[in-house]
Design a binder for these strands. Structure first.
Lengths: 282, 282
DNA sequence: AAGTGGTCTAGACCACCGC
DNA sequence: CGGTGGTCTAGACCACTTT
């Protein structure tokens, strides 16, 4: 049995697992994209394997080709597969699709098997912070919720997190904030961050940071300024975070890809914008 | 005249400028997306303005609705507009669509009105660098092109750039490298980077960096390790770059958005992955 | 009820690649 | 040449928001 024959049998076995529920409120393309993604992430389809072509997959699942194509576009966008005109679609190489996904620092630490804890240094309502207000596109006198937290992992100080919330969330408590991540709390209050602009820099630690983060001699901090907005562009919060440089890395994936994950053959279209995904890890 | 009436007249004037060439080899959706993008970037359409709806725009341009929709999806992906079911499409707020796009450090400096220059410290063919080879998924003994450059702006040292190329480009010359950016040279040789994984960190400058970059006392460096791959996942290069922290910031835009720039209403689909764009600036 | 975006169909023709 | 992905059409029905 040749290796390609083995790959074909993998493909056939995988295809047999696929199914979509046309009565579900979940879009068909989304159902299929999730199943295809899982197949690759679980290793059922392996790097270099030929993907079933769009037409026959559509026929097999009784879907139209555009719908199947849209599903595959999701995988292309995630960097899991590569489409080549005239050739076919193949599962991308290992190093390409180890694409980091974003999670909050709290979640990231937890995922690393560490125990994240939070010490709330400050929680104040109705604060005025003209700089934060300006960054959030609000009037300078807009009252904000000011927040200062020290994030630790297994008791080791990791980051100093300062945030100013544009929302009148008077029910936030120190206990809530020490129990988990800020964005999780916001989502519980139906606040869905949609866009966040971050600026990553670095400098030597201030004396306060040195004290709170227990940084070593000459250890710098990685600084992240963040502006978050919801679906409609309404401001959510402004954050200024300092991470111990020796304990953190920010992973970014830059990708050149047209919007829908297809690759126009035209040179003008190739000069397209580039997209990336971000994760942070300790 | 009400402000919405003014916005409507802007919209009408803008629509009159639109046109697509059906005989062009450039995809129709791409032609339209570029024109719409330009209209927003040039301020012809302003934040908060209502976009023409998909159906009438399709009718006006004699295109099908899916094609127009695909164009608008490009803008959604770029963060320029916001779609809301039952409401319409509006131009995103200023702070949301000031989305930085990626460019090479060389291009970024030039765009800032600075004069970028490059000093080639090393250019060596057939080098063995097991660490770089491993990162690129190559055999440890694979010969690489080793490259070390000092990038300056207006004569001020900005960054130390070390790269190892996986490609047998024996025709690279010091003169080429001092004339422009590395990736521009690669594109001239038909090498199209498709995916780049970067890890951003920070540490205090080594003595060599201190000497070459003329860093101030206690000034750290921002470090970026980068792996670049082409369309097919073939490795292009491994880079280790050190930027003077006081002179650089990395801008990242995180966005939660489904693949094609649409927003599934289903909660399961909302728990989708997040995308971002990266730029670096001095 | 009217109008918007969100999804989907069942085709079509073309460009590119490998045989 | 056949098979693949890339683009496009002309509809359809639905979900959601506003009036």
């Amino acid at each position: 049995m040749t290796s390609s024959a083995i790959a074909e049998s993998r493909q056939a076995a995988f295809r047999a697992q696929l199914s979509v529920d046309k009565t579900s409120p979940i879009p068909l393309y989304h159902q299929l994209a999730e199943q295809l993604t899982k197949g690759i992430r679980d290793g059922i389809l392996q790097p270099g394997d030929q993907f079933e072509n769009e037409v026959s997959l559509a026929q097999y699942l009784d879907l139209s080709r555009p719908t199947v194509r849209r599903s595959i576009a999701v995988l292309v966008d995630r960097g899991l597969v590569v489409r080549r005109r005239g050739v076919g679609t193949t599962v991308a190489h290992e190093t390409v699709h180890r694409r980091a996904e974003f999670a909050s620092l709290h979640d990231d630490l937890a995922a690393s098997g560490l125990v994240p804890t939070t010490r709330v240094l400050k929680l104040a309502f109705g604060q005025h912070e003209p700089r934060a207000a300006h960054a959030l596109n609000l009037a300078p006198a807009t009252p904000l919720v000011a927040l200062e937290r020290l994030r630790m992992a297994n008791g080791v100080p990791m980051a100093l997190l300062r945030n100013w919330l544009a929302l009148p969330l008077r029910d936030l408590s120190v206990a809530d904030l020490e129990a988990g991540g800020l964005y999780e709390l916001l989502r519980q209050r139906a606040v869905w961050p949609s866009v966040a602009q971050q600026t990553i820099g670095s400098r030597s630690a201030t004396s306060e940071e040195h004290r709170l983060l227990q940084t070593g001699r000459g250890e710098p901090v990685l600084t992240v300024s963040q502006l978050a907005f919801d679906d409609e562009g309404a401001p959510i919060d402004f954050g200024e975070h300092s991470y111990r440089a020796s304990l953190h890395r920010f992973e970014v994936t830059r990708r050149s890809a047209p919007t829908d994950g297809t690759a126009p053959s035209d040179p003008a279209a190739r000069r397209s914008h580039q997209f990336a995904s971000l994760s942070q890890s300790a």
